[in-house]
Each structure stands twice: as C-alpha cells, then as structure tokens.
Amino acid sequence: MDLFDVARSCFRRWYVLLPLLAISVWYSYSVYSSVQPVYYANTVIGLAPPSVRQDSPSAGGEIRRNGLLDVGGASLVANLTALGLREPTVVDRVVAAGGSPDYTAKAFPTPPPNPQLPMVFVEQTSSDPAEVTKTLELVAAQAEVTLRTLQQQARVPEDQMVTPFVVTPPGTPVAAMPTRTRSTIAILAAGTGLSILVTVLADVLLTRLRSGRRIQPRPPISDTPRDGVPPYDVDAQREHEAPDDDAVDAR
C-alpha cells in the first residue's frame, strides 16, 4: 500500500478520519492551554583581585601573595567559586533562607579587553517569579562567604584575597513557555498519524466485509452416492447428474 492508496482510503472513509482529527486537535489545544509559564532571571557576579599585590618580602621576611591566582589565575578562582556555590552545604543554606535549590552557577571569561576578570553566572528558572528573585539574591550573598572560605582553606592572606561583587543584579523574571509549542506539535503529529492508521484499517476491514457479501454460494451437492460414484467425488457426481445427450435425442 502506497501513499495513493492511503489517500484513497482516507477519502472513502472521511466520516472516520474527520472525527479522529477533531479529537486530536481538541486534545492538542487543551495541552497548549494548560501549560503554565515559567520565569527566568540571572545575576552576574564579578571577582575583584586584591588591590595591592606584595611581591617583595615584608618586614617579617614573608612574601604575601594569593597562591590561587599564582597557580591558575582569576579563571581558576571563578571556576572554584561556581563549584562552591553548588556545594550541598551552600544549597542547604539557600533553601533554609527561602530560596530554591534548582539554580545553576557557572564561570565564563569576559571578552577582551578584560580577559583576566572572569565572572560567575547564576541563573534560576521557576514557576514563581518571587522565588526566582529571592533565590538569586541569596546565592549572590553566599558567593562572598563561599569565596572567602575557599581562600581561607588555601591559606591566602586576608589582604591578598579576591572579593566578589555583583555586576548585574537580579532583573525582573521573564515569563516563558519553552515546552508548550514543542509538546503541542508532537501530540498533534501523533494524533494525526494515529487517525490515518485507524482510518486505513477501517477501510480495509469494511472493504473485505463488503466483498464477502457479494460472493454467491455454489449449489449444494448431494451427499447420496449415485450408481457407485463416491459422494466425495464432486466432479463425477455432477457428470452423473447431467442429462445424457443420447437420452435427450431419443425423447
């Protein structure tokens, strides 16, 4: 069966196809209307290097430097800060203060002319716009604690620590429905395909039933043997029952 056969079947059984298509369209519209919007916002946290880097020994003979900056630069500090903001203890503090645990944090370098000032990008998506704003504010506050704890563990001197600052505060959450159109199209396509399949199957079944009614039954054959002819020999029975031409001429 090719596409032309499918089209002919759908045309013949339009009274089956159209109601099924109507049901598919109605269900797709219901799904499209029932999807709730989600809200998205983000904040950007910058990292400020120490204002003074002391490369010469101090009075006590100690060189005070930020070892993290010496090893991997500000990019290393930004990546460690982004990872630290996703630590379970930090997430628990955000949730305990009324935020959501579903935020994401990642580091990305800024383009030239400031390649040495990477930033931490924090974003949040939720069905409640107030929750989005509150979560971002709480994460921005935790960035300072996280970065300070990280540098303390690396034994960075206080005056050589990198400090965070908010580059872009949380903006007004923007409503979006990222899955509504995609899910509606998928449901409509699946409903259309199923409707065509059911219509073709119904056409095949009805055609076979109608063809079976048009077949005329053959006349029954007597089961009684005639002159020694076995009853199961149908051709012999018919030849025996046929009138003899000589007998007809004699009459």
Results as ranks from 00 to 15, higher is better:
residue 35 V to T: 10
residue 244 D to S: 13
residue 125 T to M: 14
residue 147 L to M: 02
residue 49 P to H: 09
residue 108 F to V: 12
residue 218 R to E: 10
residue 194 L to V: 12
residue 196 I to Y: 09
residue 232 Y to P: 03
residue 183 S to L: 08
residue 23 I to P: 05
residue 248 V to K: 03
residue 153 Q to D: 09
residue 71 V to E: 11
residue 32 Y to S: 00
residue 193 G to N: 01
residue 49 P to C: 08
residue 27 Y to E: 10
residue 242 A to Q: 06
residue 213 R to L: 09
residue 22 A to P: 00
residue 26 W to N: 06
residue 130 A to G: 01
residue 225 P to R: 12
residue 250 A to E: 13
residue 225 P to M: 11
residue 68 L to Y: 04
residue 163 T to K: 07
residue 164 P to V: 07
residue 161 M to S: 08
residue 161 M to R: 12
residue 42 N to E: 15
residue 187 I to H: 06
residue 147 L to G: 07
residue 98 G to R: 02
residue 208 R to P: 01
residue 66 N to C: 12
residue 251 R to Q: 13
residue 168 T to R: 05
residue 232 Y to C: 00
residue 57 P to L: 11
residue 172 T to A: 05
residue 152 Q to S: 02
residue 32 Y to N: 03
residue 232 Y to Q: 06
residue 101 P to M: 00
residue 251 R to L: 14
residue 62 E to W: 15
residue 228 G to Q: 04
residue 112 P to L: 08
residue 38 V to C: 00
residue 208 R to W: 00
residue 69 L to Q: 08
residue 51 S to T: 15
residue 165 F to G: 09
residue 25 V to G: 10
residue 217 P to R: 15
residue 148 R to Y: 10
residue 80 L to R: 02
residue 232 Y to A: 02
residue 117 L to N: 01
residue 203 D to K: 00
residue 22 A to I: 08
residue 118 P to W: 11
residue 108 F to N: 03
residue 210 R to K: 08
residue 137 E to M: 11
residue 136 L to M: 04
residue 209 L to T: 11
residue 248 V to G: 02
residue 11 F to H: 12
residue 199 T to M: 00
residue 88 P to T: 14
residue 57 P to D: 05
residue 67 G to L: 15
residue 99 G to P: 09
residue 36 Q to D: 10
residue 225 P to I: 14
residue 98 G to E: 07
residue 93 R to M: 12
residue 144 E to C: 03
residue 60 G to E: 15
residue 15 Y to G: 02
residue 137 E to W: 15
residue 58 S to Y: 15
residue 226 R to C: 09
residue 111 P to G: 09
residue 240 H to F: 14
residue 98 G to L: 06
residue 92 D to T: 10
residue 32 Y to I: 01
residue 229 V to F: 07
residue 87 E to Q: 12
residue 17 L to M: 12
residue 41 A to R: 01
residue 58 S to C: 13
residue 221 I to Y: 03
residue 119 M to E: 01
residue 202 A to Q: 07
residue 72 G to C: 14
